[in-house]
Design a protein around this nucleic acid. Structure first.
Lengths: 193, 193
DNA sequence: CGGGCCTTTGACTGGTTTCAACTTCTGTGG
DNA sequence: CCACAGAAGTTGAAACCAGTCAAAGGCCCG
């Protein structure tokens, strides 16, 4: 149950066996069926969620009912509406499972308690956040600097796994284009080969 | 020289006088003239820079020579190519001054040393990074979910100061649109009032 | 086997870019 | 202090990319 998490942490900081044992006590395992919500718009995001298995997504829904994909979470990824989690404000986002999934939840209280008890984890999360910033910066640059086709190419290259696993319309939403446009881009790129 | 920095840190964590004194020793003051570079594409980003006074920008330049604004830095803001800073890889970005500016530089070595000597600063930077992620998430959602006019409205609302202080063409670049389009948007919005 | 969702395709629309010209503003040297 | 060159902003016309609307085909799951 903790394989992916411990590996992920182990890549960034070193914990003793004792610390590892203590670490586990802060997490709550949770299984999610396909299409089941972890967070719904209007609720407060009370947990950091680590994906042990499966696939989640975080998205918003606009006035017209259109969904906008902000994040996917494969095994080894964290997912959270960090704003709601930190401030306690209701979330504008939804998180649900695209496939049956296994999660490890870390509540706000346990998050704080863990930081106090295991100061090394400050470092772990700082590194996590650093990496997240780098990734978001890339995506942002891509979004403001390039057209649809180029954005899709970069996405393919950055996440070759996703392309197989995630429905076209969700990738389109992630890129900020319509499913129709993405379909046409794929046809065009396929022809070139 | 340290006013803005100490205030910014004080909002997030509490330091004793001793710790404050020690903190200062890790920073190097630097003045930048308008148009002067802090970082040029191809160089390694060796410093975190805190803006005490003035105005900086971080941007990339694409194949066609077009600049893409990724960040502005007013007093109280940090600016860095975090990827280059952390990995030691050459930067794809430029940082330069839009106005005469005063900075406090924190080198990689001093950053690490400071973290070790003042563990509270782990927390400060974690909070900083959290806030940065929230801000980038907002901008990203805006970029993929809305058209040019709506994006500009949100920008105006989020950063009313910037609109006065920053040239139109840089705001356009920040929003991922052309200066012409932004000029027309402004005309249209002005008419409505 | 049937229904619903996802994907594809086509025709049309509309927002943005591109290109070009002109104006306004700013800074710098004669 | 003026003149002028370059940068910044505005405006218009044409081209283009992506979105919208509509319909049909494919595929999975119940």
């Amino acid at each position: 149950m903790f394989e992916a998490l411990l590996q992920n942490i182990g890549e960034k900081i070193a914990l003793t066996n004792e610390e590892t044992a203590q670490l586990k006590t802060y997490f709550t395992p949770k299984k999610l069926r396909k299409r089941q919500y972890l967070l719904q718009e209007g609720d407060v995001c009370k947990n950091l969620a680590f994906t042990e298995a499966g696939l989640l997504r975080l998205y918003s829904v606009d006035d017209k009912g259109i969904e906008h994909m902000l994040q996917f979470a494969l095994p080894g990824w964290w997912v959270v509406d960090i704003y709601s989690f930190l401030t306690g404000e209701p979330s504008r986002f939804n998180i649900d499972a695209l496939e049956d999934s296994e999660l490890l939840l870390l509540s706000q209280e346990n998050f704080e308690a863990m930081m106090a008890a295991l100061p090394k984890m400050e470092r772990y999360f700082r590194i996590l956040f650093q990496n997240n910033i780098i990734a978001k910066e890339r995506r942002l640059e891509s979004a403001i600097a390039f057209g649809a086709e180029e954005r899709y190419r970069q996405f393919e290259q950055a996440y070759p796994d996703f392309v197989q696993r995630i429905p076209l319309n969700l990738i389109a939403s992630y890129l900020g284009i319509t499913p129709e446009t993405l379909s046409r881009i794929r046809r065009k790129l396929a022809r070139k080969n």
